[in-house]
Amino acid sequence: MSADLAFYPGIHQPGNACTFQRAFISINRLRGRLKPITCPDVVIDSGAFTELERFGRYRHGVEEYARELRRLHAAGVVRITAAVAQDFMCESFMLARTGLTVAEHQSLTIERYDALMVERLPFPILPVLQGFAPQDYVAHLEAYGDRLEPGHWVGVGSVCKRNGRPEQVVAVLSAIKRRRPDLRLHGFGVKLTSLMHPGVREMLHSADSMAWSYSARKQGRNGNDPLEAKRFVERVMAAAGRAFEPWQIPLLSIGAAA
Score class of each variant (00 low, 15 high):
residue 1 M to W: 05
residue 3 A to N: 14
residue 3 A to Y: 14
residue 6 A to T: 08
residue 8 Y to L: 10
residue 10 G to E: 07
residue 12 H to M: 13
residue 14 P to R: 05
residue 14 P to E: 10
residue 14 P to C: 09
residue 15 G to L: 13
residue 16 N to W: 14
residue 23 A to H: 01
residue 24 F to W: 11
residue 24 F to Y: 06
residue 25 I to S: 01
residue 27 I to F: 07
residue 29 R to D: 13
residue 30 L to G: 02
residue 32 G to E: 05
residue 32 G to K: 06
residue 32 G to Y: 03
residue 33 R to T: 07
residue 33 R to E: 11
residue 35 K to M: 15
residue 35 K to H: 15
residue 36 P to V: 07
residue 38 T to F: 15
residue 41 D to I: 01
residue 45 D to N: 08
residue 48 A to D: 12
residue 49 F to R: 14
residue 52 L to G: 09
residue 54 R to V: 13
residue 54 R to C: 12
residue 56 G to R: 03
residue 57 R to S: 08
residue 58 Y to T: 06
residue 60 H to S: 13
residue 61 G to C: 12
residue 64 E to C: 08
residue 66 A to H: 04
residue 66 A to I: 07
residue 68 E to D: 14
residue 77 V to K: 06
residue 83 A to G: 05
residue 91 E to H: 13
residue 93 F to R: 12
residue 97 R to H: 10
residue 98 T to L: 01
residue 102 V to R: 11
residue 106 Q to C: 10
residue 107 S to G: 12
residue 108 L to C: 09
residue 110 I to R: 12
residue 112 R to D: 09
residue 117 M to I: 11
residue 119 E to L: 04
residue 119 E to P: 08
residue 120 R to T: 12
residue 120 R to V: 09
residue 122 P to E: 06
residue 123 F to Q: 02
residue 123 F to D: 04
residue 126 L to A: 05
residue 127 P to Y: 04
residue 133 A to M: 12
residue 135 Q to W: 11
residue 139 A to L: 12
residue 144 Y to S: 02
residue 145 G to T: 02
residue 151 G to L: 03
residue 154 V to G: 00
residue 156 V to G: 00
residue 163 N to E: 02
residue 168 Q to I: 03
residue 168 Q to V: 08
residue 169 V to S: 05
residue 169 V to H: 07
residue 170 V to T: 10
residue 171 A to H: 03
residue 172 V to D: 01
residue 178 R to Y: 11
residue 180 R to C: 02
residue 181 P to M: 08
residue 185 L to S: 04
residue 185 L to W: 09
residue 187 G to F: 02
residue 191 K to I: 14
residue 192 L to S: 09
residue 196 M to S: 15
residue 196 M to H: 09
residue 197 H to S: 02
residue 198 P to Y: 10
residue 200 V to Y: 04
residue 202 E to Y: 08
residue 204 L to C: 06
residue 209 S to Q: 00
residue 211 A to M: 07
residue 215 S to H: 13
residue 216 A to M: 10
residue 219 Q to P: 07
residue 220 G to C: 10
residue 222 N to W: 13
residue 222 N to E: 14
residue 224 N to T: 15
residue 228 E to V: 11
residue 236 V to N: 01
residue 237 M to Q: 10
residue 238 A to E: 09
residue 245 E to S: 08
residue 246 P to V: 00
residue 247 W to C: 14
residue 249 I to P: 03
residue 250 P to Y: 02
residue 251 L to F: 11
residue 253 S to H: 15
residue 257 A to C: 13
residue 257 A to S: 15
residue 258 A to C: 13
residue 258 A to I: 13
